[in-house]
Design a protein around this nucleic acid. Structure first.
Lengths: 140, 140
DNA sequence: CTTTATTTTAGAATCATTCTAATTCCACTT
DNA sequence: AAGTGGAATTAGAATGATTCTAAAATAAAG
């Protein structure tokens, strides 16, 4: 656990540095909040959790930092229909399942070959930078 | 062309009737606008096109009617990230490709077996009512 | 230290969408 | 043919998530 914490911390610094950005306390705290409870919180929820540790932080900063983390590929932004954007620190290729009963979101691991198969349906003139797969339904 | 127009017209009346709703001029015009130019317009764009034929229509009605058509399964609502919802009268299972250069959206036919394969990655406790597949990239 | 660029912040502004409350429109009875 | 009740439409206000703006704080570089 100690090693993995150090690893993510290093990855965090590295990714920001690669983009010429600073590892500020706000960015680090927000990233840690996402790592700690991986329930796909909205910006508002992240704000609430972060305020517990850093009461002076502003909502604008939470939005700014989340955007920064997404830019650095440390975090993924997840959207369902018109709902507020949710944030996810899972870097592995995965789909999302949105449970309509509970409103919760679950990660679904994506086998690499399936991603290939899905990309293969594109006509040759289309080049995909990203593929999004999401499910809506109920989990029991 | 005449036969197909009649067909969609009948389907339109049938789907609404099935939901206990009326086939109003506004609903029909909006549906026809979607059929005529299948470029995934936003509600605002639909509003502009519809106003040309029915200058007294309101934006609220456009939103109401689009929502109604989606409820009746005559139209699909398509979302990309946080952009405005786009509307699509293509009933066949298909994915969407969003071209970041032009901002345009393209339908990509989905082979039925691929949809099955994708659904198959879900653990047994998840029941999916809908699967969404979307691509982001550039088309040439 | 001083300069300069980055980051944070509070609050205003924006944008798409939904809501509200008042008509208007129809299908169905009298 | 008028009356009634539920649908549907409408204009404009309200909402909610997000982005913008301009100023203050912070930190790196000279």
């Amino acid at each position: 656990m100690e090693a993995s914490t150090t690893d993510t911390h290093t990855a965090f610094n590295q990714r920001l540095a690669d983009s010429g950005l600073r590892a500020t306390p706000q960015r680090e705290l927000i990233y840690n909040v996402l790592l700690k409870k991986r329930d796909h919180p909205t910006a508002d929820e992240v704000f609430a959790r972060v305020k517990a540790e850093m009461p002076t932080i502003s909502l604008a900063t939470v939005y700014n930092c989340l955007e920064t983390l997404v830019q650095c590929d440390l975090v993924r932004a997840v959207n369902f229909e018109r709902g507020p954007t949710r944030y996810c620190p899972n870097l592995a290729p995965h789909a999302h399942f949105h449970d309509e009963k509970s409103g919760s979101t679950h990660d679904i691991d994506l086998p690499a070959d399936l991603v290939e198969r899905v990309k293969a349906i594109l006509p040759p003139s289309f080049r995909a930078d990203a593929v999004e797969i999401s499910f809506r339904g109920t989990a029991c």
